[in-house]
Design a protein around this nucleic acid. Structure first.
Lengths: 123, 123
DNA sequence: ACTATTGTATTATTTAATTAATACAATAGT
DNA sequence: ACTATTGTATTAATTAAATAATACAATAGT
């Protein structure tokens, strides 16, 4: 995975894991790879990975079983609410940005449709 | 103006000025305030402000007349293309993010419409 | 000519993120 | 019991952004 150098890596890691969990690329109860392994795999320092995983734990998305490792939560309602929150955040950011650029709601919808026509494949 | 602490301030400044120019809150030919004045007003260090303004200059959005100060470009086509680029960037980011969250184009439109119903005032 | 105001440059300090290197703590699995 | 693997903690070094303080350069306007 590649990082945006203008955003702290640990935040980008948290986001990526949230995405994987929410999209069921990792399932509830799944064992995650070890801190060191993940760090290696994603080319970051173990400390940075540790920090990201600690955040995930705070969110309730993973839990630790010493010393077996870390596991994805089986609490589906937590996962769902995280997903909802992620979508809302994206919507909010988009609408705020386009509002700042002078567009109104209906124009945003039009723009989105136009954009999707242009780039899309799976309409 | 308030800053997102996770994004370099000079980038946020560039963005804000781009927005102001593109939205004609500042008009072509307008004299901008001095580096020091802007820095004071926006509560950043003059060096940070200087950096942001230098970026704006690179973009062709402002030019310097030593020692009168800095002025907004009168080249409307530059302004328009910057605006287009900003909108495209927002669209792209939004669509990429929601794609990563497992949505397809038509669902994105639905989500946006729903979201706008909920929050909107100026549909 | 003078001078205030402009942009610009420089050097140092501070702060936060990241990396680095290492050590400790706990226990599952043999 | 041993040991490899797990998470966790600590301390230092590095890097980049931001701030701080100051100086220089140019000229519009008096």
């Amino acid at each position: 995975m590649e990082f945006d150098k203008n955003i702290p890596i640990h935040l980008q890691l948290v986001n990526e894991f949230k995405r994987q969990i929410v999209l069921k690329e990792i399932n509830g109860g799944d064992k995650m790879k070890s801190v060191r392994e993940l760090a290696e795999e994603m080319n970051v320092n173990p400390n940075t990975m540790q920090k990201a995983l600690a955040s995930l734990e705070t969110l309730g998305l993973v839990y630790t079983e010493r010393t077996s490792g870390r596991f994805v939560t089986t609490n589906e309602s937590v996962i769902q609410s995280v997903k909802t929150e992620m979508v809302e955040a994206k919507m909010s950011e988009f609408v705020l940005s386009l509002t700042a650029l002078g567009f109104r709601g209906n124009q945003m919808v039009e723009l989105l449709e136009k954009y999707l026509e242009g780039v899309d494949f799976n309409e």
